[in-house]
Write a protein that binds this DNA or RNA. Sequence first.
DNA 1: TGCTATTGCTACGCAACCGTATCGTTACGA
DNA 2: TCGTAACGATACGGTTGCGTAGCAATAGCA
Lengths: 191, 191
Amino acid sequence: MAEIGVSGRVQRSKDAVLKTTNELMSEAGIGGVSIDEVSRRSGVAKTTIYRHWPSRSALLLDACSRLGARPDLPDTGSLEGDLAALVGYLTEQLRSARWPTILPSIVDAAERDPEIAALHARLQAGFAAPYLVAIERAKARGEVPADQDPGQIVAAIYGPFFYRRWFSREPIDRAFAARVVANVMAGIGRA
Amino acid sequence: MAEIGVSGRVQRSKDAVLKTTNELMSEAGIGGVSIDEVSRRSGVAKTTIYRHWPSRSALLLDACSRLGARPDLPDTGSLEGDLAALVGYLTEQLRSARWPTILPSIVDAAERDPEIAALHARLQAGFAAPYLVAIERAKARGEVPADQDPGQIVAAIYGPFFYRRWFSREPIDRAFAARVVANVMAGIGRA
DNA sequence: TGCTATTGCTACGCAACCGTATCGTTACGA
DNA sequence: TCGTAACGATACGGTTGCGTAGCAATAGCA
């Protein structure tokens, strides 16, 4: 009987496959990942891969679902402080993390594949969550008018960052981040 | 001698191929376009396609380079008015045009393919241009402080729209558009 | 140590796609 | 009308990828 320990043989194989899959995704996009290549690179036999995932898309789904790293929820006492912290983390992630390279693939696939769309929605919710928490707290403190749409604020923050990262491809530094927050705060002030 | 008229035989073939390529791109993404399928759907023989484009990627490049429709440059006399007009056009495009379906593919490919990256940069410049013109005019009128970074403003506008369209997938209506412009104007006021 | 689940290896069959070659057939301008 | 450029149809070779099968090797628990 194979009572699978946390680092049993199965786990080691799975980990190796998932790691290689992630690397390949960031190098070649989702479309550039093939089981044969994952097998070659990871050293795990193709047969074994198919023993753990029923199909290519199942593996990709699995690998993608492990992407979003959550930031610690900051609680500085003011919305501006919380946003500054969150945005600093985002700036760092966009510079060094691996998911920014992969996300466009997911967005593209989500445009047509409903399964990927569902996955994307989950990731998206994870991204937005800490901002929504910060905004709700600010509302509770009376810092933000109750009729303000939180989604609008989140869009005003993430939007410029994502736009720069994937569309205009301009650099994203602290000055940029600070101005995004300042603009958002100005917009809230006048609501 | 084949003096190619505007609607010669060659042009008809090319047009049919490009049209089909565009349809396929919006249905299946760039990665989902194959020459065989384009040939089947368009009725143009594969051989003929290769007579006009040296390779698959050449065809895709060509098709993608014909994407961005330019809006008329508005000139309402105020930045807010110009932005409202431009943003109204953008809202309409995001709802009904075909390029929003295709652009994620381009963004994804641009992440790795330098040729697509160059194409993407050209498209991007076309998108940003009318906004930059409006901002420059506003600066000339003294409506916007001269030290304001135009790129920052463009990001503050496009960002939320693109974020909603491809990331949060929330609806984009006139109310949303109006609030984006209002936020931007508020941010400029405090610069 | 021995038994069993798990893995590796090799080899398939099948499909899709790229890009080329050949040759007969059409459209169209001179 | 007639000649040539452009096109269509078919076939091909090569590559890559998916997913499966069969069997030998191995690791790890009992």
